[in-house]
Simulated scan of single mutants.
Amino acid sequence: MVKIPIPAPHRDQPRFPKEKFKTLLAFVFLFFNWVLTTCTLSMTHERVPNYAPLPDAVLDSIEVQEWGLTVSEILIIVSIYICILVVLFHKHRWILFRRVFVIMGLLYLYRSITMYVTVLPLANPNTYCSPKANHTTPILVIKRALQLLSGFGLSINGKQTFCGDYIYSGHTVCLVLAYLVVREYTPRRWWLLHWLFGLIAIGGVVMVLISRGHYTVDCVIAYYITTRTFYIYHTLANNANLKESSPNNFFERLWWYPLFWRFECNVQGVVPRHYEWPLPWPRRWSSKNPQRTS
């Protein structure tokens, strides 16, 4: 009798691996930079100058509407919740969460730098600011940071009473990023949802401006840096040749490129717009059949 050994069948690596541990690391990256931003604001608060508001072509031509900031933050909460649902029901949710965490982490990191290096006077002189301590100690910074974290940085929760977080607008970042995520990862035939999110983003930014919650330049910079970071990240992620070292790959010179490569090196191709029920029950809703992508 002749015995011929048959090797085990070769299993190709999945094109879109979940890599849950990487997603956890991406969340840690986001959380660290979020805490860093709150610590930076707690120190920036002490340096806000007691000057009149700077000249602003938009703000100087409209009457202040104090209720606008509340409306803007309600729109932010609604857009974030819907965005989370979109990502949660996506078949490749772990990749999407990972990308959102990394991009938000980068945006928070940049914001912690810009708000500290250049401190602007209050855009709205009627804005309530907590009394200054005229000194900063580690205990004071931690105490203020915990207060900001408990309210998720929103004024509507009554926890955001520290001033100076102008350049650039965190409200605009959240609104624009939520729109970009929904626009990118939902089917094209959902154009009504895309238009709705676009209007929510525009409306939220307008509400911030009419309430003088930010200078116009804060919103312009926030829009630019959010869209460019999102577009650059996804251009790198969707083109395999840009994940390889090459003298013609100028994106490789980005300081966060090694971070991007670690998170995206195993993702092969453009993430399809497939959706599925995220829970193991009930089974009839847990179909793995592919869906239309457009």
Rank of each mutant, 00 (worst) to 15 (best):
S246N: 07
S245V: 06
F250L: 12
F251G: 11
S245E: 06
N241L: 14
W256P: 02
Y231P: 01
W256I: 04
K243D: 15
W255H: 02
A222Y: 03
Y233K: 00
T235L: 09
T227Y: 14
Y223D: 06
F230V: 03
N241D: 14
T226M: 15
S245H: 11
N238S: 13
I221D: 04
Y223P: 04
W255E: 02
I221R: 11
N249A: 03
Y231M: 07
Y231I: 00
W256K: 01
Y224A: 09
T235G: 08
T227V: 15
N241K: 14
Y233Q: 00
T227D: 11
Y223S: 06
F251P: 00
N241F: 12
W256E: 01
F230N: 09
A240C: 08
F230P: 04
I232T: 07
T229F: 00
T226I: 12
F251L: 12
I232R: 02
F251H: 00
T229E: 00
F251A: 09
Y231W: 09
L254I: 03
T235K: 09
T229H: 00
R228C: 08
N239Y: 08
A240P: 11
N248P: 07
P247G: 03
P247I: 04
E244N: 14
N249G: 03
F250W: 13
R253M: 06
Y223V: 06
W256S: 01
T227W: 14
N241E: 14
L242C: 06
N249T: 03
T229N: 00
I221C: 13
A222D: 03
I221L: 15
L254N: 04
T226A: 15
N248F: 13
A240Q: 14
I225P: 01
I225E: 01
T226P: 15
K243E: 15
Y233E: 04
F250V: 08
F250M: 10
Y233F: 13
R253W: 09
